[in-house]
Each structure stands twice: as C-alpha cells, then as structure tokens.
C-alpha cells in the first residue's frame, strides 16, 4: 500500500521553493502538478533531460529505412514493375514515400512514447480522490509525495511547513 500526500500553493515560486526544500530534506517520490509548465521545477525536483528526442530519432530512422526497404523490395525484387522503362532501382522515386514514413513513424513514436512515459491512459489515479486537486489543471500548483503510509503524517507536516494549504492524504488500497 502507498500513500499520497498533497499540498497546494498559489504561486509558482512557492511551489518551486517547497519542492526544492522537501527534496533537500530527503523526501523521494515527489511530483508537482500545475496547469502550465513551471519554470525551474525540473531543477528543483532533480529531473533529468527528457528521453523523447532519442525516441523520436529512433522512430525517424526506422521510418526512413523501412520506407526505402519497402519500396525497393516490393517494386524491384518481389514484384518487379517496369514503369515507362525506368530502372527498377530508381532512388529519386523513393524519396517522397521514404520521407512520409520517416515523419509518420517519428510522430507515432513521439506520441506513444510520451503516453508510455506518462503511464497513459490511467483514467483513475489516487490523487483524483482529493476534491481540491481539481484546481491543478486550472490555477492551482500542487506538490505531491508518494510515501509509505507510516510516513504520511510526517510528509504532510513537511508540506505544511513549506507553506502548502489544503494538505490532504490519500491511501491507495490497490497498492500500485
């Protein structure tokens, strides 16, 4: 079983300061929730650079190779088609489709990579149990900590000390 402890801030700067302070106190499993990306939160939470560009690059290169290989194999090897006497292997004609497959695979890997990184779809998450958390997508700035139930009260205290209001606790029965 896991517990989630949440607290709300009205200002972004306060959120960043609280995140930094809690992390320095040794709290793990911290996350921030905000309606817009918050400047400086990545450093405060100690987040690393995103892996999405790498995923995109792999997707793009796969798309290029697949696009070229498909056209070459299908039209020049498996079922050779003579079109107006042009060479069976005519690279200029491959460019448009290879480009499109590159873009399509890159886009699919970016989006589904993003979903995978976010654990989407996950329609219900324990933090949604907190009614006040509804402001996280409008104008509230929340800091959450995922902790052992035994330490939940201490985490709540730390949040309150950092200036949070509406501090709430949710226990996740399913223990994900």
């Amino acid at each position: 079983m896991k517990s989630y402890v949440l607290g709300e801030f009205t200002e972004e700067a306060a959120l960043v300061a609280a995140a930094r302070s809690l992390r320095e106190q040794g709290w793990a499993g911290l996350d921030a929730h905000s309606p817009v990306p918050v400047h400086g939160i990545d450093e405060a939470l100690g987040l690393e650079r995103s892996v999405v560009p790498l995923i995109a690059l792999i997707g793009a290169l796969t798309g290029t190779v697949a696009g070229i290989a498909m056209q070459w194999w299908m039209n020049a090897v498996d079922y050779p088609i003579n079109v107006g006497g042009r060479a069976l292997v005519s690279p200029p004609t491959w460019v448009p489709i290879a480009f499109e497959t590159t873009v399509a695979l890159a886009a699919l890997s970016i989006v589904f990579g993003l979903f995978a990184l976010g654990g989407f779809p996950r329609l219900h998450h324990p933090v949604f149990e907190v009614e006040g958390f509804r402001t996280a997508s409008v104008d509230g700035f929340w800091l959450s900590a995922e902790v052992e139930p035994a330490r939940a009260e201490a985490a709540a205290e730390a949040l309150r000390k950092a200036g949070a209001r509406n501090v709430s606790r949710v226990d996740d029965e399913e223990g994900t």
Partner: peptide, 27 residues
C-alpha cells in the same frame, strides 16, 4: 487519459510538442 499536470510529464510533453512541430514543418 489521466492527465495530472505532472512536472515529470510536462518536461517530456514540452519537448514532444516542439518535436512534433519540428517534423510537421517539413511534412
């Protein structure tokens, strides 16, 4: 999809959005 405005996801999201813009332009 269960969007929680998580900072852990925002950082991926922003770069993903920029990259989608980047590939949409030549597209």
């Amino acid at each position: 999809l269960g969007w929680r405005g998580s900072a852990r996801l925002w950082r991926h999201y922003r770069i993903a959005y920029l990259l989608l813009a980047g590939i949409s332009t030549p597209l």
